Computed example of a mutant assay.
Amino acid sequence: MSLFYRNCREVTRLILERENRALSVVERVAVRFHLGICLMCTRFTGQVKLMNRAMAQWKRYAEHDEHDGSGG
């Protein structure tokens, strides 16, 4: 088994973990290698990015409401 081989379960875990910590070089290479061959994990990565953007937008919207005084 290659040092850089990870299955889908391991890769999705790493994709989520990289939101909270920096991945090691080996982990980053393993994720990149896996994403090069796995359409489902590539789609999952896109979904995680979309959710992160949506949450950031929602936070800005909520902060704007608090400062605006409308309080929704």
Rank of each mutant, 00 (worst) to 15 (best):
Cys41Gln: 02
Trp58Ala: 13
Ala62Lys: 06
Glu63Pro: 02
Asn7Ser: 03
Arg53Ser: 09
Val11Asp: 01
Arg53Phe: 04
Ser70Gly: 05
Cys38Ile: 09
Ile37Gly: 12
Leu14Phe: 02
Thr42Ala: 15
Val26Gln: 10
Ser70Trp: 09
Met40Glu: 15
Arg21Glu: 01
Glu10Asp: 11
Phe33Glu: 13
Leu23Val: 00
Cys8Trp: 08
His67Leu: 15
Phe33Pro: 02
Leu3Cys: 06
His64Trp: 12
Met55Pro: 02
Thr45Cys: 14
Glu66Phe: 07
Val29Ser: 03
Glu63His: 04
Ser24Gln: 02
Val29Glu: 09
Val29Cys: 04
Gly69Lys: 01
Glu27Thr: 00
Leu39Met: 15
Ser2His: 09
Glu19Phe: 08
Met51Asp: 09
Val26Asn: 10
Gly46Trp: 07
Ile15Lys: 00
Arg32Pro: 03
Glu27Asp: 02
Ser70Val: 12
Met55Gln: 11
Val26Ser: 08
Arg60Val: 07
Thr12Asn: 07
Glu27Leu: 01
Thr42Ser: 15
Met55His: 12
Val26Met: 08
Glu19His: 04
Val11Leu: 03
His64Asn: 06
Arg21Tyr: 02
Arg21His: 01
Arg32Lys: 13
Phe44Thr: 02
Leu3Glu: 09
Val31Phe: 00
Leu3Asp: 06
Thr42Asn: 13
